[in-house]
Design a protein around this nucleic acid. Sequence first.
DNA 1: TCCATATTTCCAGTATTATCGAAATATAAA
DNA 2: TTTATATTTCGATAATACTGGAAATATGGA
Lengths: 115, 115
Amino acid sequence: METIRSHTAVNALSALAQEHRLAIFRLLVQAGRSGLPAGQIAKQLDMPASSLSFHLSHLKNGGVVSDERDGRSIIYRADFQAMNRLMAFLLENCCAGDDCLPADAADACMEGQDS
Amino acid sequence: METIRSHTAVNALSALAQEHRLAIFRLLVQAGRSGLPAGQIAKQLDMPASSLSFHLSHLKNGGVVSDERDGRSIIYRADFQAMNRLMAFLLENCCAGDDCLPADAADACMEGQDS
DNA sequence: TCCATATTTCCAGTATTATCGAAATATAAA
DNA sequence: TTTATATTTCGATAATACTGGAAATATGGA
C-alpha cells in the first residue's frame, strides 16, 4: 500500500467531516460495489440537487468516492482503498513502531473490486 | 464496542481535518501511551502557544485525544479506541452486510491501555 | 430537431473556522 | 509571598465553507 501525504489525508477527512457528506458516504459504503446514481442519493437523503452536487464534488475531490457516468445518470461509489490508506496514515508508526501494525480495516469490503 | 452517532463522528473527523491538528494527532499516535505535554508539542511542531491550545481543545472536543494535568504541564494522548469506533461507524453495514466486517484497526495500538 | 431527465455550475447571502498577540489562570519553586 | 513556567482565554481580523434557487450542460428518446 502506498503512503499518502498529510495534505491528501486532510482533504479526505474534510470531505467526511460534514453531516450531509458523512451520510452520503455511509450510504455509498452500504451500497457497496454497485454504487448509487446521484438522483437516488438525493431521494434517499431528501436533499436539493445543487446542495447534493456540491457535497458529492467535495467527496470526490477528497478522494473518498469515485464517479462514473452511466447514460444520463452518474454513479457514485465509496472508495474503500482510500479509507485504508487514510487509516494507515493516521496510525503510522503507532506507539513508536513497537509491535503495532495498523490493520486494513476496509479490506473485507473490497473483495472483487478492481483497484 | 458501542456504536457512535453521526454527530460524534463529524466532530471527530472535523478535529482531524486540519493540517496542524492532523500533525498533532499523528505525533501523539507515535508517542503512544505516555503521550506528550503541550509544550513539547509546541516545540516539535513550532507553533505559537495560543494556536496550539486552540487546536488541542478542538481535538479534545472531537474526542480523539485526552488530557491529564501533571504538575504545571498538561499531557495529551491519542485516543485509539475513539479511532476504532470512528472507523466502525464509517464502514458500518459495509456492502449491505455481505461477509464484510470492519476490523479494529487501532486495536494493536491499545494493548495495555486502560479503557 | 424538440422535449424530458439527470446533474452541475453560478451566485449571493449567511455562518463557521483559523490565526496569534496580549492578558488571564494554574501550578510550582525560591 | 514573589517569581517563573505552562497553558488557556479573549478579541479582532481574515479566510473558508454551506445553502438552495435559477440557469447551464449533457444525455437519451420521440
